[in-house]
């Protein structure tokens, strides 16, 4: 089934300079009782964003109007812990199209790619520079170009290449879906099962 196509994103960014952000923080388990994929953005970072009595915590970045945009920039080892795809759904549903970090947890990375959310892995040095520039000017515009596999800071002209397999890149750019691919090779799967399993 077709998914949203991804090519280039140009936006200011929201910085979250904390390491090891786990999926329980991104979307706490008590919000996993839904049976559809919709509406998880409301509870993104729920316990960091709101008090127990549902008041917004003013010191949390998503409650600070200074920082806006469709790019989330995070500390290393982002998305560790639970395999809940709801974490990727929540980030995407909130309005982010790209997550930048120096290091992603494996399952989160797969889940993001399967939902049109692009994980961009950059060097520690580039990440530090991003955090510094965003802190000094929250309107700093960042461009993520999937075709070129490049992330650039427009004001400084600095850029860095990022990795993605050519298969996944093709899928993201065209909005293709892994399941369509697998369904197309079903005969091959059946033959394999008969001969090798």
């Amino acid at each position: 089934m077709a998914r949203d196509k991804f090519n280039t994103v140009q936006s200011s960014a929201v910085p979250l300079p904390i390491e090891n952000v786990d999926t329980d923080q991104i979307i706490p388990a008590r919000f996993l009782k839904a049976t559809t994929r919709d509406g998880f953005g409301e509870n993104l970072f729920r316990d960091w964003r709101f008090t127990n009595s549902n008041e917004p915590k003013t010191d949390f970045i998503l409650n600070d109007n200074t920082y806006k945009g469709s790019i989330l920039v995070c500390g290393k080892n982002f998305g560790s812990g639970s395999s809940r795809e709801h974490a990727a759904w929540a980030i995407y549903d909130y309005g982010f199209k790209v997550v930048v970090s120096s290091f992603f947890a494996d399952i989160f990375k797969n889940n993001a790619l399967n939902n049109g959310l692009l994980p961009v892995q950059v060097s520690e040095a580039f990440l530090s520079e991003l955090f510094e520039l965003i802190a000094s000017d929250p309107k700093t515009v960042i461009e993520v170009n999937l075709g070129k596999q490049e992330i650039s800071i427009l004001s400084s002209g600095k850029s860095e290449k990022f990795d993605i397999s050519s298969y996944k890149k093709e899928c993201m750019i065209n909005g293709y879906d892994d399941i369509d691919y697998l369904l197309n090779i079903k005969d091959q799967i059946e033959t394999f099962e008969k001969s090798s399993i």
């Binding site: 994929r37 395999s83 809940r84 795809e85 709801h86 990727a88 399952i107 797969n110 889940n111 399967n114 939902n115 892994d178 399941i179 697998l182 369904l183 079903k186 799967i189």
Partner: peptide, 11 residues
């Protein structure tokens, strides 16, 4: 993840 659960259910 759930998209992968769907892949395995399907194929």
């Amino acid at each position: 993840g759930t998209s992968e659960v769907e892949m395995v259910l399907a194929t």
